[in-house]
Write a protein that binds this DNA or RNA. Structure first.
Lengths: 212, 212
DNA sequence: GAGCATACCTACTCGTGCGTAGGGTTACGC
DNA sequence: GCGTAACCCTACGCACGAGTAGGTATGCTC
């Protein structure tokens, strides 16, 4: 007369992914501190001790989320940026891949990143990832410059790259908040700002503060 | 034989400012949730019930911080952007004022904003402020465009403005993390990226995705 | 079908930190 | 000098949520 187990027993690997899905969802909705392990467990359709057994403490769980989403993003971008292409082509492909990723994982990405910014333990983790991106962009600009036989101080390039990455993240946030918006179009907009600006700089045009 | 009161009795207005100073400091160091009212009180040289008596609950206290810093920032920028100047001049002055502000209040500003991003109750408050900035920048671009007799869809302008604001905030974060960096120089860098990019767009140059 | 590992649960402990009750002390008006 | 209002404190109640103890059921191997 027993109805049997209401929910199936599943292999570890599957449950871990379900837990991570739930964790990303709840963390993004509530923020790291406000999220409760109980809610994550419930959302994953499992009880709390299972989460601790598989993914460890709350911090470790968050790091696992960060890691999975970060890896997904890097993979999405990695293929796009073949180093032998011209700089504008590389930038365009990179941006398209990036916004494509954000568009697909709106919920996950943007808010995870918004969360990780504030909390000390994770901010460094995030900063490392961003540093990698900045380095790639700076390297690309540098490459393009050398191809024209000119050179710019590394620090300057890095700051420019930093600004570009910041602008991109900002538009990614915007995209995440506007479900109706189109990822491809957003990428084009970003490319306009980034490339026409970078293009000018690459051609040696420089703006100087007025001497008043 | 009594040594008298170790700490002076001070009028409300003074104490409130001390509390806000302490709150900004602690919130920025620890983040909203990790910050404790006890630590804030201790740092302000006062006991906890006083904080509740004057500034209300933790959320209300944080909002008060956000409000004070936000107002300071807006005031810093407000004077700089006289509407009758040419667009590049206005942008330059705005940026200089902005980075000057961030440079002066490194501790307070950047981290307050980093915090407010994540937590739902404050994210909207912040979004409103940012929206005002975006509007100002978009208005400036629009003005410059009309002066040349051209016109661009409002939505497009807004996205471009959004990207510029994002890039600027990103460099502000960078500035806040690099105490040795110079605010003026950072503003110049930002102006290079923003204006040379915006300048191209204003001259009607547009980048189109390659048809492959 | 006995043994064992793995999946899974209910029901707790315990620290932490928000918010408050209730009372003391200094200044200031009259 | 005396009331009254503002300033300020020590000490608590209480809820919430991280992490755990200890036990049950299911599938897999031989």
């Amino acid at each position: 007369m027993s109805t049997g187990p209401a929910f199936k027993r599943l292999p570890r690997a599957v449950r871990e992914q379900q837990m991570l899905d739930a964790a990303v969802k709840v963390f993004s909705r509530r923020g790291f501190h406000a999220a409760s392990m109980d809610e994550i467990a419930e959302d994953a359709g499992i009880s709390k001790p299972m989460v601790y057994a598989y993914l460890g403490t709350k911090e470790e769980l968050f790091v696992a989320c960060l890691h999975r989403e970060g890896t997904r993003m890097m993979q999405a971008i990695a293929g796009a940026a073949a180093p032998d292409l011209p700089a504008d082509e590389r930038l365009w492909r990179g941006l398209r891949a990036f916004f494509g990723f954000v568009g697909a994982y709106r919920d996950g990405w943007a808010v995870l990143y918004r969360q990780a910014r504030g909390e000390q333990p994770f901010a460094t983790e995030l900063a490392t990832m961003r540093a990698r991106l900045v380095e790639v962009v700076a390297g690309m600009l540098d490459h393009a410059l050398r191809a024209e036989g000119r050179e710019v101080a590394g620090a300057d390039l890095e700051v420019v790259a930093y600004a570009l990455v910041g602008a991109t993240e900002s538009l990614a946030d915007w995209l995440a908040d506007h479900p109706e918006a189109d990822a491809e179009k957003t990428a084009t907009r970003m490319m306009n700002v980034a490339w026409l600006g970078a293009g000018q700089l690459l051609s040696g045009v420089t703006w100087c503060p007025p001497t008043d």
